[in-house]
């Protein structure tokens, strides 16, 4: 307390330094590029408007989880255990529930739709790319000029067909509905990045396609809407 003026200026210097550091940190933060701008549909939305959702915690890392099992478990399951779609179609058009019992998967019965792991080859009759939930209409070989299914090509994917068709994933293994939903989004994100990310979207009509993927029984229509796990366009 003897020399208050020195203490005072030291104090100011210290504040100044702290402020400098603070701005350095802030700047450092803003410089980091947002490497995934399409993260908007995920649990925590992008930098601009952080939506606070109750119970969304960073402890659970859905992207890591999905990424870790994608090549080792998800893709192999589809390659080994999927049904040619044309084999399902006759039953499906008569009675989708019956087709489910024969070819589908669901973890529990009541109140859950059937999910199907399928594969097929065909030709793209039309591409609908104006909506962010883009799709293509596919006519399976032997082609007859009418579409048999729609294939989702993103960037927005509807439903949880991939998560729900994996027989090694159980809701009981996750803390709550938020984690389980974020996991589904994470699978769809892998599809967006690895499967449909590099499509020549303006040049799809008329091309031949082979796919492995999943679809889920919809409530209000018998449309087959496949999310691809493996996709080749020739």
């Amino acid at each position: 307390m003897l020399n208050t003026s020195t203490t005072g200026s030291r104090f100011i210097a210290r504040i100044f330094l702290t402020l400098c550091l603070f701005f350095l940190v802030i700047n450092a933060c803003t410089i980091v590029p947002d490497d995934d701008t399409q993260n908007g549909s995920q649990g925590k939305s992008g930098e601009k408007e952080k939506l606070d959702i109750y119970f969304v915690s960073d402890d659970f890392k859905p992207d890591e989880y999905a990424r870790n099992i994608w090549k080792s478990k998800v893709v192999p399951l589809f390659m080994e255990k999927s049904t040619p779609l044309e084999q399902i179609l006759p039953d499906w058009h008569q009675n989708s529930a019956e087709a489910g019992r024969k070819f589908g998967y669901r973890e529990k019965a009541e109140g859950s739709p059937w999910n199907f792991r399928v594969r097929g080859k065909g030709i793209i009759l039309a591409a609908h790319t104006t909506s962010r939930a883009s799709t293509v209409d596919i006519d399976l070989f032997p082609a007859d000029g009418t579409p048999d299914l729609v294939l989702q090509i993103g960037p927005v994917f509807k439903d949880s067909a991939i998560r729900d068709s994996l027989d090694f994933i159980s809701f009981t293994d996750f803390t709550n509905q938020l984690e389980f939903a974020r996991l589904s989004n994470a699978f769809n994100k892998v599809v967006r990045q690895d499967v449909t990310g590099n499509l020549d979207r303006e040049n799809l009509k008329g091309r031949q396609v082979s796919f492995w993927g999943a679809f889920t029984q919809l409530q209000d229509s018998d449309q087959i809407r496949v999310t691809p796990v493996v996709l080749t366009i020739e």
Binding site: S41, S45, Y54, F55, Q177, L178, A181, N185
Partner: peptide, 23 residues
């Protein structure tokens, strides 16, 4: 209008709404 903070249903519904609407 969001539900009760102590209920995961409040969080998950808001999440579902925004995953659609924010597009």
């Amino acid at each position: 209008l969001v539900g009760k903070e102590s209920d995961t249903n409040a969080g998950i519904r808001s999440q579902g709404y925004h995953d659609v609407i924010d597009q």
